[in-house]
Design a protein around this nucleic acid. Structure first.
Lengths: 231, 231
DNA sequence: ACCTGAACACCGTTCAAGT
DNA sequence: ACCTGAACACCGTTCAAGT
């Protein structure tokens, strides 16, 4: 049954491809894609890598750091098409942000983790670099651009965390229904403004609202000087 | 040792004050205030109420719903001072939003749960009602106001979820340090824009940025017509 | 230095059985 | 209808011991 010490015979199954941080993160991405981030646990991953959970702590500080590493890896998929200085900066900016948002819409749990443990990897820097470049083209003062990029990313991340892929997520549906009922059932005497804004309060498609939101933040950045700086 | 059946004797300890949804939520708020939301678990609460975890499921669907109920209860503490039609709508609007944000800054985990399971209770409706009223005073078209209130609340909630009370939260500090290192260590050749925006990228106080962010969203709402509607 | 087994201290949720 | 004990199926993390 047991080969005392198997000879090098390269044709055998890879079996245990030596634990590395890289290998752990790769396995984590694989598990997330097939079963969702909630299954990316130390124990599940250890099982996947044919070892015990304790072994992972040599390469990864804790579960939060592991999830952050997964996000960092995924950020490499944000589309940063070749910059065309002639093209409209606003269109290009919205395109990049939309690509980022779409990525997180498919993994809302990752968006939630991004709000808590902010990324700082290479892919994230590339994304920030591009956003700074495009927003700068608007002619907005530097300080506003620097602060504004943060708000743009936060808006995309938070929206993904909120509305992300509700297919088969019964909870979100329930919440939405509860809000709709509360809002339509509001008492005219107590909540006249809610009544007055009623169809609009819940109107619009997800992508329509997302696009509007990007415009809101962009226009806001452009029109709002940073306190200490010159206009 | 055991009294077979204790007589009515009202002077004894309250012992088991009959399970109710209200009692459960009250206990949850109590536990959150003293030990944080992460301790608000079915098991911990059952212990607090001197029963088994299974008993709670008669009144509460699951842990997420319980956390949502806690948020709803806390929302009653948002300050909605008497509306003064003479006062500047913008100042009043920012004051209400700041009060809401401060509440969540003290309970960042609650802010995170708010992003996922959106509230729809009475206190939430009161908050939305007031925001609609104040934002309407700007003269902005109804549809923009209706959509905009959502963005204002989302911005406050997301910011609280991100930066909320890092005192004693070693994780957040680490993240910030990592970002600072990444940004200051960026290669001039690869990330020139990051270098160019460097002091600004990480400058400002928490409350300074929050206030600026509110202005950004407000200005954005005012300047951004909703797609289908008349300007 | 790296890896491990085993343990500690928890979780959410369900279900059959009781009152 | 409400409440419960007990169980099922998991978690994260640590630590002493091994190689």
């Amino acid at each position: 049954m047991t080969a005392k010490r198997e000879p090098i015979s390269r044709r055998e199954r890879p079996a245990k491809p030596a634990l590395t941080r890289r290998g752990i993160v790769d396995a984590a991405v694989r598990v997330m894609r097939s079963e969702g981030l909630e299954k990316v646990t130390m124990r599940r991953l250890a099982q996947e890598l044919d070892t015990g959970p304790a072994s992972l702590y040599v390469y990864v500080a804790n579960t939060a750091e592991l999830h952050a590493a997964v996000l960092d890896a995924l950020l490499g998929e944000v589309e940063l098409p070749a910059d065309e200085p002639g093209a409209d900066w606003r269109d290009q900016l919205v395109a990049v942000l939309t690509s980022y948002a779409h990525l997180l819409f498919e993994h809302p749990q990752l968006a939630r983790s991004a709000l808590v443990a902010r990324p700082s990897g290479e892919n994230y820097l590339n994304l920030v670099e591009r956003l700074l470049l495009l927003l700068s083209r608007s002619g907005t003062p530097q300080a506003q651009v620097a602060w504004g990029v943060d708000n743009l990313l936060q808006y995309a991340t938070a929206t993904a965390a909120e509305h992300g892929t509700q297919e088969r997520d019964p909870m979100s549906r329930d919440d939405w229904d509860a809000l709709a009922r509360a809002v339509y059932g509001a008492d005219e005497a107590v909540h006249p403004m809610i009544k007055a804004h009623l169809p609009d309060l819940l109107s619009g498609t997800e992508s329509g609202r997302l696009a509007w939101g990007f415009d809101v933040v962009i226009n806001g950045i452009i029109h709002t000087p940073v306190p200490g700086a010159e206009g």
